[in-house]
Design a protein around this nucleic acid. Structure first.
Lengths: 156, 156
DNA sequence: GTCATTTCTTGATGTACATCAAGGCACAGG
DNA sequence: CCTGTGCCTTGATGTACATCAAGAAATGAC
């Protein structure tokens, strides 16, 4: 487990690489995302302070996510194997699973406005720190759609 | 951990209940799902043989998912606490996380046809056992849309 | 401070999928 | 055997959001 400093924009992991690294954010902000066949970026997760960021693919499989830094960050780099051996934090794992469950339910049942409202309730800190187009990407909508949603909400 | 038999249609858990049960399917088929404010059902997960089915909310929080039986089933009922104490199967947990990751990426980047194609590749067994409208619900589309997708695919 | 780049917004148009409605099938129960 | 109920399909119409395009505003580089 070694500590590194990265600059905004630095890429830690690329989709398709065989890479069993896991990143624990000490300060700054990471993001993980895919790029689909049409070249569109989809943010899977933001990783602020204390967050664990990693692709959950099996270690020997090409990973599906890019990981990069949205802010200058200090990160502890470890491996999935190491995490597992040292008895992973079950609470963290379960909370993660629950976050994913909520996200899936939301993607299936909510429209753009509802997703955005849920996001600002759940991650009020994040929204200050990232460009809106990344929020849009996380929500699964376009920046234009997000802009119109925010417009509509500020009217009332 | 006790073993019970349930009939097709039996409801094991309702959204909003405080319930820390977890269900390990011995035979048959369960499903977990939500019903949104507009009354629409969204299937979160199918639970065939050997699957672990549970809401991942904290035990003391009202759960978000309904769980019921799609087929007559035999199920081992335990609790989340018990699962955690007995050292949960990490591989299973990680695989679960990976499944969720894939699902989220898919919901964000794929259209109806792509989702369906991915589903039949990934769960060829399930598709034989459940009505198409449940597949549609799992994919996040309407039965009508699924019907048209299948139509289109069978043309070629 | 100036220029270039990125981000955000607004409008016009397009489209994938939802919704609504109705008919045909299958099959489960009496 | 008949009948109801649930499932699947097909067509017509509606709509939320995407896409495309352009300009304004903010941010960063030198």
């Amino acid at each position: 487990m070694k500590k590194i400093a990265v600059k905004k924009g630095d890429i830690l992991q690329r989709k398709g690489e065989i890479n069993s690294k896991a990143y624990i954010v000490e300060s700054g902000l990471l993001r993980s995302y895919t790029i689909d066949d049409k070249g569109k970026e989809h943010i899977y997760m933001f990783g602020p302070e204390n967050w664990l960021v990693a692709d959950t693919s099996e270690p020997q499989i090409p990973c599906q996510l890019f990981i990069d830094a949205i802010e200058d960050s200090v990160i502890n780099v470890t491996t999935k194997e190491e995490l597992l051996q040292n008895g992973p934090d079950l609470k963290v794992l379960l909370r993660r699973l629950n976050t994913m469950q909520n996200r899936i339910v939301m993607l299936m049942s909510s429209n753009a406005r509802e997703r955005y409202e849920h996001f600002i309730e759940t991650y009020p800190k994040i929204i200050q720190r990232v460009p809106l187009k990344m929020i849009a990407s996380y929500l699964g909508i376009t920046p234009e759609a997000l802009s119109r949603v925010r417009n509509e909400l500020s009217q009332k």
